[in-house]
């Protein structure tokens, strides 16, 4: 099936009788990209499923008020990122654990995850990424895996290009150090 343009989707969504059709096109177009983005933040598949559902619920509710000041794609990524971070914070509160403990748990859960097919090197790389602070981890994943240009990332994370470049450089340095010493 041919993917619809964002503009076309938004136009369809603005009409009462084609809202569902437009939303369905939006979900089909973006669900995979958003899933992998969230998955790399929360790691577990079931948690990702919850966060992705919340992301689409928020999108459905907010799409009417979407001002088109940014691209639809960056707006969706912003919602997904915020939802994933909120989810981790809530998980953190529920378990009364520190951020470091949560990262340690995520790192441990990778080893027994049925939906992780990486070899030893990839496991080490993921564990190295999990030692980074949450926001730096997002910057690293967006740049390293998704190869997102800094300008787009700047819109998603509302941070300057310079700060993002510096953040990615430090993240890569920390990951490299972890890989060398482990």
């Amino acid at each position: 099936m041919k993917e619809q343009d964002d503009e076309e989707i938004l136009q369809l969504f603005s009409k009462e009788n084609s809202r569902e059709q437009a939303f369905s096109a939006l979900v089909n177009k973006y669900q995979r990209r958003l899933y992998w983005h969230i998955r790399k933040i929360v790691i577990d598949h079931d948690d990702t499923d919850d966060v992705l559902q919340n992301t689409f619920i928020k999108t459905w509710k907010g799409l009417d008020n979407f001002k088109q000041e940014s691209q639809l794609f960056t707006w969706l990524y912003r919602i997904a990122t915020n939802e994933a971070l909120t989810f981790l914070k809530q998980k953190n509160k529920k378990n009364t654990q520190s951020i470091n403990d949560i990262e340690y748990q995520l790192s441990k859960s990778l080893e027994s995850d049925n939906y992780f097919r990486g070899d030893q090197i990839e496991l080490k790389l993921q564990q190295a990424i999990l030692t980074l602070p949450e926001k730096q981890r997002i910057v690293f994943n967006l740049r390293y895996y998704e190869e997102m240009p800094y300008e787009k990332m700047s819109e998603v994370l509302e941070t300057s290009v310079g700060a993002l470049k510096a953040s990615y450089h430090h993240a890569a340095k920390k990951v490299e150090e972890y890989l060398v010493s482990n």
Partner: peptide
Amino acid sequence: IEKKNPFIAP
């Protein structure tokens, strides 16, 4: 390291 997504979805 070869860049690939190590996660899978059901």
